[in-house]
Design a protein around this nucleic acid. Structure first.
Lengths: 193, 193
DNA sequence: AAATAAAAAGGAGAAATGTCCTTGTCTCGT
DNA sequence: ACGAGACAAGGACATTTCTCCTTTTTATTT
C-alpha cells in the first residue's frame, strides 16, 4: 500500500528517502471494501486521503433521497473534503468506496507537520490545489454553458477510466441530470455515431 | 486609487509601510469606463487585478453569440483569469467593467517578486485561494443539485450587492439559464412571497 | 429634455428534462 | 452456481426550460 504511494510520489516530486520515511511514520493505511463508507455526511473528515488502489466518490443526499456526486477519486489521486478537513467541521459529503480500495490517511496536524518539515511538499500541494481549481472552474463553465450532450461527451473523453468503472446513473448524478435523461442522450449519441 | 487598496489590505493582513511601498512601486493604476474591456477573449490576461472601485465581470461568448458569466468582481476583491495569468495562455474569457471602475494591476513577474519579498503575502494569497475553492465547490454543488429557483434565491441572499447592481439577464447568465426562465422564476417567487 | 438603447415581462409553441413505470439483463455476494 | 439486487433501456405523460416574439418600462447618451 505505502510502496505504491512511494513510487507515485517519487515520480511527482523529488523527495529524499528520509522525507518519505517521515510521511510513512505519520501515515495510516486502510483497506476499504466496495460500498464501505469512509466518511458519513455529518461527520468530520479528519483525513487527507491518498488512494493507492480502487475508487472513491463523494456525494450528498438531499431530503428527497436524491444523490449528487461531487467527485470521483481513483488510484493515485489525493482526496478529502477540504471544508471539513480544514475547519474540522461536519462534512456535507459522504465518502464511499466504489470498488475494493486501499487508501493512506494523514491527519491535519500530521500533514501540517510534514509540510513544514519537508522542503518542496508545500509547493507540491500548491500545484495540486491550482490544478484542482482549474478543474473546478472548467466544470462550472461547462455546467452553465454546455448542453447535457456536450457534458456527457466531454466526460467520456476526459474521464474514460471512470466511465468504464462506474454505473451510468452515477455519471448522470455527476453531470446533474437524471439517469433517464442520460439514457436518452446516449441513445441519440450512439445513433448519431 | 492606491490609498483605497492600502486601507483595505492593512485591514486584511498586517503589513509594514515598506511592504506596502513595494507593492505600490510595482502597481499599475487604471481607470475603466463602463463597458470598457480590460481583457479580450483570446488575449493573455497578464495581470492580477485588484478592484478598488466599480464592478468587473468575466464571461465567454459561444459560437451562437450566447454569453456565459463566470464571475463578478466588485470593489475590494481580487480578480484574474488564473489559467491565462499563470501560463501566459490566451484567455477564454472577456473581462469587462460593468460600471466605471478603478483597478490596480500587477504582472506575474512583479507579483512573484512581491510574494517572495513580503512575509505573509504568500499566506494571504493562499487563504484567498482556499476561499475561492470553497466558493467554486459550492457553486458546482448548487449547479448539479439545486432547482433554478433555489439557485436564484441563494444568489440574491448571498450576493445582494451584485443583485442590486447588475441587470437580471446577467444573473440569469451567471446561473446558467435564459433570461426568460429567470423572469418566470421571479414571477412565481414574488407571488409566493 | 429628447432620442436612443437597454432591460424586463409576458405569451405561445417547440424541445428538453423529469417522473413514474415496466422489462430484460447483468453482477455480486454467498 | 444460484438467487437477490442492481442496472440499463425505454414508454408515456407532466413539467420545465428554451426559443422567438411583442410590448412596456427604465436607463443612458448626446
Amino acid at each position: 500500500m505505502f510502496p505504491e504511494f512511494e513510487t507515485y510520489l517519487k515520480e511527482q516530486e523529488s523527495l529524499s528517502n528520509d522525507d518519505i520515511d517521515m510521511m510513512r511514520v505519520k501515515s495510516i493505511e486502510k483497506t476499504l471494501r466496495r460500498k464501505e463508507i469512509l466518511v458519513h455526511q455529518g461527520e468530520v473528515c479528519r483525513y487527507k486521503i491518498f488512494v493507492t488502489k480502487g475508487l472513491l466518490r463523494s456525494y450528498t443526499t438531499r431530503e428527497d433521497g436524491s444523490e449528487h456526486i461531487m467527485h470521483f477519486s481513483p488510484e493515485n489521486t489525493w482526496f478529502t473534503d477540504p471544508e471539513s478537513f480544514a475547519n474540522a467541521a461536519p462534512s456535507n459529503y459522504t465518502i464511499e468506496a466504489l470498488e475494493n480500495s486501499e487508501v493512506i490517511l494523514w491527519t491535519k496536524n500530521d500533514l501540517r507537520y510534514l509540510v513544514n518539515s519537508i522542503p518542496g511538499l508545500k509547493a507540491y500541494f500548491d500545484a495540486l490545489i491550482y490544478k484542482a481549481g482549474t478543474t473546478l472552474r472548467h466544470r462550472i463553465h461547462s455546467a452553465i454553458s454546455s448542453t447535457t450532450e456536450e457534458k456527457y461527451e466531454e466526460f467520456i473523453k476526459k474521464h474514460a477510466d471512470i466511465y468504464a468503472r462506474v454505473p451510468l446513473h452515477m455519471i448522470a448524478s455527476y453531470l446533474g441530470v437524471t439517469r433517464e435523461t442520460l439514457s436518452r442522450i446516449r441513445r441519440a449519441y450512439t445513433i448519431g455515431k
